[in-house]
């Protein structure tokens, strides 16, 4: 893939990050109307860096990821604006056959439900080996050998004996390991993990996160970790982008966000994590429902649920205010939110 891109840009000629999403707009044309799923999302990830994208269902985090991969269903989906630059080249302007070569080779993705995401009628080894056969033209036997090595690498016990087993013969955690093996097969530069641990139980979640972190360290991949679970990201992420209603409402280095959230929504998310020292107290929950994408609230999309709401929140859409070089918050009253957090 790098050859394809270097023809156009010259490798490393660009100055920005490895992958940059710039002011992306995506909408879905449905019978009920136009659902604005992504409204001007901007984020970036560099080699060796982990970006956690946080948000509840419908916040646009998965749609953004699918747009990066080029696997968005179009129609009903439609990209109405923005750029996705990989090594400085706008992927959205590349012809399909070049985008296809990037998928799996340079940018790859793992999904939430590994059972339905793996093809039920082919052995897992075959599905991993397909990456080598189709992208690299390896022979069947070579590709299978590499598949076993990969299964070893993601620590599937007795990989050699299990290479011909089918997805349904594995446990949930093992299946997700197979997905990971498939995604890292060709040493991609960017790995997008879309809620990789949501369908797993807690101990397995930790193992999978540990595995992802380790693989990323070894190969210096850029990792985009999409989740709705703040507990998952604390240890692995470098920076966090919090999404709400198709926008990024806060971005920050991970520790800053945990210490002093600068947006009422991120603050609400943090407060709704159960904590040992609050045993016996009622658990905080953000009141209200996520916004209806067909009818976005005017002004700040979060205002109907926001405890800091003032009059201008209903009318003025807050821009992403710069707090410091690496931090931003889309709240008119971010100072207040931070100050209260420090108290």
């Amino acid at each position: 893939m790098t050859e394809v891109l270097s023809e156009q840009t010259g490798r490393g000629a660009h100055s920005g990050a490895l992958l940059e999403v710039d002011n992306l707009h995506v909408e879905f044309r449905t019978r009920a109307g136009v659902a604005k799923a992504v409204n001007g999302v901007t984020y970036s990830v560099d080699a060796g860096e982990t970006l956690a994208v946080l948000g509840e269902s419908g916040s646009g985090k998965s749609v953004t990821a699918q747009t990066i991969m080029g696997i968005l269903d179009m129609p009903p989906g439609k990209i109405t604006g923005g750029e996705i630059r990989f090594r400085g080249v706008d992927l959205l302007k590349l012809p399909e056959d070049q985008r296809r070569k990037i998928r799996g080779e340079s940018v790859s993705m793992i999904f939430q439900d590994a059972l339905s995401s793996l093809n039920p009628v082919f052995p897992v080894g075959w599905q991993i080996a397909e990456m080598f056969r189709m992208h690299r033209g390896s022979s069947r036997s070579d590709a299978k050998k590499k598949a076993v090595e990969l299964m070893d690498r993601v620590r599937i016990p007795a990989a050699k004996d299990r290479v011909n087993d089918f997805p349904h013969q594995f446990s949930g955690g093992m299946r997700q390991r197979i997905m990971i093996a498939m995604a890292i097969a060709l040493d991609p530069e960017i790995l997008i993990a879309d809620e990789p641990t949501t369908a797993l139980d807690v101990t397995v979640q930790a193992q999978i996160m540990g595995l992802l972190a380790e693989l990323q360290r070894d190969s210096n991949m850029g990792l985009i970790l999409i989740t709705h679970d703040l507990g998952v990201v604390a240890d692995v992420a470098d920076k966090i982008a919090v999404m709400y209603g198709g926008r990024i409402v806060e971005n920050a280095p991970v520790h800053d966000l945990y210490k002093t959230p600068a947006h009422p929504y991120s603050k609400g998310l943090l407060e709704s994590i159960p904590r040992v020292d609050q045993k016996g107290q009622e658990l905080y929950a953000i009141k209200g429902l996520p916004p209806n994408l067909l009818e976005m609230p005017p002004g700040c999309a979060f205002h109907p649920r926001c405890p800091y709401r003032r009059d201008n929140c209903v009318t003025e859409v807050p821009p992403l205010y710069t707090i410091s070089g690496t931090r931003g918050s889309a709240c008119h009253y971010w100072r207040e939110v931070i100050d209260e957090g420090e108290r």
């Binding site: 990037i102 790859s108 995401s117 189709m134 498939m182």
Partner: peptide
Amino acid sequence: LRSDYVRTAVAKGLTNRRVVGIHLLRN
């Protein structure tokens, strides 16, 4: 066509012909 494993096959960077002819058709 809407199933997750077809989406995976596309995400693997397979040609459209292979996604349809192998992954989709076989199921």
